[in-house]
Design a binder for these strands. Structure first.
Length: 450
DNA sequence: TTGACTCAACATCCTTTGCTACAA
DNA sequence: TTGTAGGTTTCCATGTTGAGTCA
């Protein structure tokens, strides 16, 4: 008896020429009533294949791409990269490696590709990263690299894709790769992006991230789709030798009298509603419930809007601008990145201190120009809202100033990571300033992110 | 090829001290 | 007794992204 495996529209189709096999006994395989065929989600491909092998079946496997690639790596891996690679291989070439920004996750993935030598898809969240990876692969392996996304639709044995484009092409090319690498793999927890991992058959899967855990718990889904964390090393373990040493300095500022008055009024409106409505925030979904209520309860809506205004007051306090002036003066000869949460403030600071500004409204060309000049040293400072947190190739800096941010540990880690690429002399010491408005909810927000 | 636009998706958005049901 | 986890649906606003469309 021969069992045939085929890839079709994001699924693995199982057929056999005899009656000995009950296909639904295979992992994930169900009978499709419409076509009468037996199929499993593509991600179960390896489990199905292995189960058939265990039973000694003769398998005609038309899913696995049979192309073999000769890829050689010029880099020598560092000790922790070797260890991460070994851990991943030891877990049947599945799993997530959690390493800080700047510690060489890309090199690790290149090494995995070279060792496996199978057609590989690299999935990334932004077009910026798409281009970085493509350049890296081309220069390292000297082969043409395919691209899905950013206006291109070109397949090759080594291909890079955005999460969006990978999803759009999955039914079509989901069986073409032996290895799939998810850069910034925490994105895979998003409701829509999960399907990327489901619809591709690639048996070998590598996830890369600096911050695996998600506040919504969806990292468990990611672990299910890609594999568990097989290796992790945090910033502190690498700083000094492979990453710059750093300090985080929290600076407390006070609201002005009028700001305090406004803050207390708006925050009071919010707290009062929350108390009256009996919302305790004892579970994570309570805030969500408040949002639902605001759909038809005017008081709930007003409470949320008041909270929004209170947040703006505390995050954009005038005293932070004064404090920033001092910091810029103190680090006049160093490269400084200023992070905020609101675009309005970005433009205010840009005008006041003549800082080049990057926000979501900044076009691609202008963005490239600013980052290029920052890289060359023509600009030594840049101010941005959330744009530079992730997914953009940001030139190295040694001073960061967090004017405002969310309570997200991920955002904090990413911002810190912007400063940690070691200097050429190895003597660099980075500083991240955190400006926090005292006696406001921002103190809690700042505590939460660490 | 580009730029401007729309659209959908993702992420964050959280108070203080208290209720209830259930498991160890 | 003590400690701990927690039930609904169609979503207030802001910032950012990628894909697609059209001029």
């Amino acid at each position: 008896m021969t069992v045939t495996l085929r890839f079709e529209d994001g699924a693995v189709v199982v057929s056999s020429d005899g009656d000995d096999l009950n296909p639904t006994s295979l992992p994930g395989v169900e009978r499709d009533a419409r076509t009468g065929s037996h199929r499993a989600p593509a991600r179960r491909y390896r489990a199905v294949r292995d189960a058939l092998r265990d039973r000694g079946a003769d398998v005609d496997d038309r899913v696995a791409p049979d192309a073999r690639l000769e890829l050689s790596l010029r880099y020598d891996l560092r000790e922790y990269q070797e260890a991460a690679l070994a851990a991943w291989r030891g877990n049947d070439e599945r799993g997530v490696v959690e390493l800080p920004t700047g510690s060489g996750k890309t090199v690790l993935a290149l090494a995995a590709m070279a060792e496996l030598g199978v057609p590989t898809l690299v999935v990334v969240p932004t077009v910026d990263l798409l281009e970085q990876w493509r350049r890296e692969l081309e220069s390292e392996f000297g082969v043409p690299v395919g691209q899905f996304g950013g206006g291109e639709q070109r397949a090759a044995a080594l291909t890079v894709a955005t999460y969006d484009s990978a999803y759009l092409r999955a039914e079509d090319v989901g069986g073409d790769f032996g290895l799939i690498v998810f850069d910034e793999v925490h994105h895979l927890g998003g409701e829509g992006y999960r399907d990327v991992a489901r619809l591709f058959a690639a048996p070998a899967r590598l996830g890369l991230t600096a911050t695996f855990e998600r506040p919504d718990g969806a990292h468990e889904t990611v672990a299910d789709l890609v594999g568990p964390v097989v290796f992790e090393r945090d910033v502190d373990a690498l700083s000094g030798e492979h990453l710059a040493e750093y300090d985080v300095r929290r600076i407390e500022v006070r609201l002005s009298e009028s700001e305090r008055e406004e803050y207390e009024r708006e925050q009071g409106t919010f707290v009062e509603y929350v108390r009256d409505a009996g919302i305790t925030f004892s579970s994570g979904s309570d805030y969500q419930e408040l949002v639902y209520r605001s759909g038809n309860d005017p008081r709930a809506r007003e409470a949320l809007l008041a909270k929004q205004r209170a947040r703006e007051v505390m995050m954009n306090a005038d005293a932070k601008v004064t404090e920033l002036e001092r910091i810029l003066e103190r680090h006049r000869d160093e490269r400084v990145i200023v992070f905020t949460a609101h675009t309005d403030l970005v433009y205010r600071l840009s005008e006041r201190f003549l800082l080049p500004a990057i926000t979501g409204e900044t076009g691609a060309a202008e963005r490239r120009e600013i980052l290029g000049k920052f890289r060359d040293g023509e600009y030594t400072r840049v101010v941005s809202a959330n744009v530079l947190d992730e997914g953009v190739d940001v030139p190295d800096a040694s001073v960061g100033v967090v004017i405002s941010g969310t309570g997200s540990e991920r955002q904090f880690t990413q911002r810190l990571g912007r400063l940690l690429r070691p200097g050429s002399d190895g003597e660099k010491r980075a500083v991240l300033y955190e400006l926090v408005t005292s006696e406001t909810a921002e103190e809690r927000v700042a505590d939460r992110r660490r």
